[in-house]
Write a protein that binds this DNA or RNA. Structure first.
Length: 803
RNA sequence: GCGGGUGUGGCGGAAUUGGCAGACGCACUAGCCUUAGGAGCUAGCGCAUUAGCGUGCAGGUUCAAGUCCUGUCACCCGCACCA
């Protein structure tokens, strides 16, 4: 038999068999133990599959295949997150309807995925652009609307001055339009919002109950950004009061001025009290003109205007202090106003220096506060603070809180960085928002019986001049009647963002053809939660957070059985170009999966991507390293040549047990690279003996099967094993048989290796030490010296300390 | 600035509770085989020609440190005036 196998033919053969037999279709038998493995469904772009996609898909495919061999009923589904801007832009540019572009792209992606031999259950394929799917996306929106979690709000959006069109944040690159390179400004528009902030607490607390990798949990926690502090009411010289939020109420005696955001509503109310209102007005205008980009760039250079005529009174000492407006205070966080403590806050310190304001130290223990702010909360003692003097920061916070509460001017307050989710896009290629606007009734939800509200098929889906959705031009579609009062009304013409369809797709996989509900109760009870979800870190604060939000909402209204959608979340590292840079067309370092499959085969591609390095870390592609994986599979193929009858041979039995243990555990820990290394080692051992027994061979190819499913199935039938490999059982190991009867230990003198000994694995410490000291080379080393200490670490080493 | 992470051969990367650093693979070198080799097989492969030195750098704990502690440098990712 030749040493090379015809991977093209073999892989096609097995892919056809799996397809035809529906080998990997999840069973609807809800009595079986289940495993729900999930990977992020792709956006079917025109570029086709990226070599990064299969890294994630292969890993969970391996887990899924192993779980099946272990007897689980496995759901490993795939679908298409197909609404979105690139498709729409491509459609506009090439004058092809987005639905056709989508259809073509999906066909290409599907072909590519199938050519990699993933064990997806294709009978459950979902597509977010399919009306029978987005019917339920719209349905969920209606439930959110009914519960007051979807609302309209006036807010600033990105506007391209040249395209005369609203852009999503992703379309604004370095402050200019991604498509034409023109300036992007902020424009006020009315937008649909989802009240994700209402779930901030639940989203945080839920993290304690799930098995997510730490960096995902940390990133979500930081993003939600809970901070505990105090809301304090300040009086003014004109009688009005206003609130500020602080986490450092202990520093109240160090407050030397106040700052309000330029957008603060009290400013207009105070217009006639503020003597320099013209100046204030001017500052407000210039602040509003700054783009986010400029605001970030100018972050270090503090600007502001002092109010002339209105001052604040510090409640702890009745000192009159100035009020400034400055854009370093954000209207969207806390109360839009702060107390400034330059001695103990870096930003306040910079501002105070620039405007020549006093800096009063109230926490001692740092450097001179005139040269830098002392912000450490863990050390330091209160000074210049009357009744707080001598306390630690921690104690002072408690005491001042009590004092403020007693006076009725301060209360405990929790704030979040998380903002509500801007949910509308002025675009064609998205789910229509199922709401009608009636002059009399306002925004009225469509009756559920009218869902899906189908995206009308239009000839022109280009953005309009005035920043409205292309749907706005479809007057036939737009003009309707109010579901509430029957009067003429207009449909909402904005569509949902791409994140909508992907926020619940994993639920649909449980029961994808259901036309009565988004999925049946029984299906959800059985399959939820997802047992293992792998995806990119870039989705941690977007898709992953959004979908947790929707899921928690669906749980609250009784649609899903669990509070958390995913039990376990892992994340893969990126596959970089050969030069170590991110793969991109412009860098010219993109690797095409089709070419790899053509030249090396899908099994080699899979093994290589798993062997490339630590799954969680980025790894550069290497065109020469991939040959090692191919060579490995060629050698596996050649094992048929040296196959003999028999069970595990005594001399390699322990290595086989160790390998089963290693591969079994490594797959669960996503350490695919070391699992493959263990299989390579076993192969090397077996090859050195010149033969392999049937039992050894059987174990070996089952262990390899999840990694390289085609070649192993072929070897299975070629060598006369019964049935199909995927119907067999995962091998088991015996812990007791994982160790050899004899092991090599090293003998160290003062920690330096001086000899190696072969000893029985269960040798006693005294015997091991005696044996070591009886060895010639060791005898010479300890001759005439004092033995201070001697140790035996079982199965590892002997260390003799001499002087 | 804040948060998270990473530093190990020429390269990708391995190393249970601290216990033989460099598994496995790539590249490379020599030999074999071949009409030929971007194929295969065999052997070698951290540095240093010896007892020595080696896991970013400097200390420390320990019989023993890639692993623990203190300090420090570099790079990567995320957020970015969140009071």
């Amino acid at each position: 038999m030749e040493n090379f196998y015809n991977y093209t033919q073999i892989e096609k053969k097995w892919q056809d068999i799996w397809d035809e037999k529906q080998t990997f279709a999840a069973k609807n038998d809800y009595t079986l133990p289940k495993f729900y493995g999930l990977v992020e469904f792709p956006y079917p772009s025109g570029q086709g599959l990226h070599v990064g996609h299969p890294r994630s898909y292969t890993a969970i495919d391996i887990v899924s295949r192993k779980k099946r061999l272990e007897g689980y009923n496995v759901l490993y589904p795939m679908g298409w997150d197909a609404f979105g801007l690139p498709t729409e832009n491509f459609a506009i540019k090439n004058h092809i309807h987005p639905s056709i572009v989508t259809e073509n792209n999906i066909a290409n992606f599907k072909r590519q995925l199938k050519s990699l031999g993933f064990s997806f259950d294709w009978s459950r394929e979902v597509n977010t652009t399919d009306p029978s799917y987005y019917k339920w996306t719209q349905w969920i929106f209606l439930q959110l609307f009914k519960k007051g979690l979807a609302y309209k709000s006036q807010m600033a959006v990105n506007w391209c001055t040249s395209c005369k069109c609203v852009l999503a944040n992703e379309e604004v690159v370095n402050g200019v339009c991604e498509r034409c390179g023109s300036e992007v400004i902020q424009k006020e528009k009315s937008q649909w919002m989802l009240k994700i902030t209402e779930y901030a607490e639940k989203l945080l607390d839920g993290l304690n109950d799930v098995d997510f990798i730490d960096r995902v949990k940390t990133q979500q926690r930081n993003w939600i950004g809970r901070s505990y502090g105090t809301q304090v009411t300040f009086n003014t010289n004109i009688g009005d009061t206003f609130d500020i939020f602080t986490t450092r109420a202990d520093t109240l005696f160090g407050v030397t001025y106040m700052v309000m955001s330029p957008e603060h509503p009290l400013l207009n109310k105070w217009a006639d009290k503020i003597k320099n209102f013209d100046e204030v007005k001017e500052y407000q205008v210039s602040a509003s003109k700054k783009s986010d980009f400029e605001r970030t760039e100018l972050a270090k250079d503090k600007t502001g205007v002092m109010l002339d005529g209105v001052t604040a009174i510090n409640p702890v000492n009745n000192t009159e202090i100035p009020i400034f407006i400055s854009d370093y205070v954000l209207i969207s966080y806390g109360t839009g106003a702060i107390m400034a403590v330059p001695a103990h806050d870096t930003r306040d310190w910079e501002f105070a220096k620039k405007f020549g304001l006093p800096i009063i130290e109230v926490v001692a223990g740092g450097e001179d506060v005139q040269s830098a702010a002392f912000t450490d909360c863990a050390t330091g003692t209160l000074v210049n603070s009357d009744f707080l003097n001598g306390l630690s920061v921690e104690d002072a916070k408690v005491k001042i809180q009590e004092w403020l509460t007693e006076k009725g001017i301060g209360s405990v307050k929790t704030n979040y960085k998380l903002r509500d989710w801007v949910f509308s896009r002025q675009r064609y290629w998205g789910e229509p928002i199922p709401v009608v606007y009636c002059e009399k009734c306002g925004y009225v939800p469509l009756p559920e019986s009218e869902l899906p509200l189908v995206l009308p098929n239009v000839d022109s889906y280009e953005p309009t001049d005035n920043g409205e959705s292309p749907l706005a031009k479809m007057t036939d579609w737009v003009n309707t009647t109010c579901p509430h009062c029957g009067a003429p009304a207009k449909r909402e013409t904005d569509t949902m963002p791409q994140w909508a369809g992907s926020s619940w797709y994993f639920l649909r996989y449980c029961d994808p053809h259901n036309d009565k509900e988004l999925a049946s109760k029984e299906a959800l009870e059985y399959w939820c939660p997802v047992d293992w979800y792998n995806g990119g870190m870039e989705h941690t604060t977007l898709h992953l957070l959004y979908s947790r939000f929707w899921h928690k909402f669906l749980y609250d209204i009784g649609v899903v059985p669990n509070a958390e959608p995913y039990s376990k979340r892992t994340s893969h590292g990126m596959i970089l170009g050969e030069n170590g840079e991110k793969m991109s067309k412009s860098r010219g370092n993109v690797v095409n999966p089709d070419e790899i499959i053509e030249n090396y085969g899908a099994d080699t591609m899979r093994v290589y991507e798993m062997f490339i390095g630590d799954f969680e870390k980025a790894a550069p592609w290497s065109q020469s390293s991939i040959k090692g994986s191919k060579r490995f599979l060629d050698k596996v193929w050649a094992l048929s040549n040296i196959l003999v009858d028999g069970g595990y041979r005594e001399e390699i039995e322990s290595e086989i047990h160790r390998t089963i243990k290693k591969v079994t555990e490594d797959i669960e820990g996503l350490k695919m690279n070391t699992a493959i290394a263990a299989l390579m080692s076993l192969l090397n051992t077996v090859q050195a003996t010149g033969k392999i027994t049937r039992e050894e061979f059987k174990t070996f190819i089952i262990l390899l099967n999840p990694f390289a499913p085609h070649i192993t199935e072929e070897l299975w039938v070629n060598n006369g094993f019964d049935g199909m490999l995927n119907e067999t059982k995962w091998p088991t190991f015996d812990e007791a048989k994982c160790v050899d009867a004899n092991v090599e230990i090293v003998v160290q003198i003062n920690g330096k290796i001086k000899a190696r000994l072969n000893v029985p694995a269960d040798i006693s410490a005294p015997d091991a030490l005696a044996l070591a000291k009886g060895t010639d080379s060791i005898k010479a080393e300890i001759e005439g010296k004092n033995i201070i200490k001697e140790l035996y670490v079982p199965k590892k080493l002997v260390n003799i300390v001499v002087k």
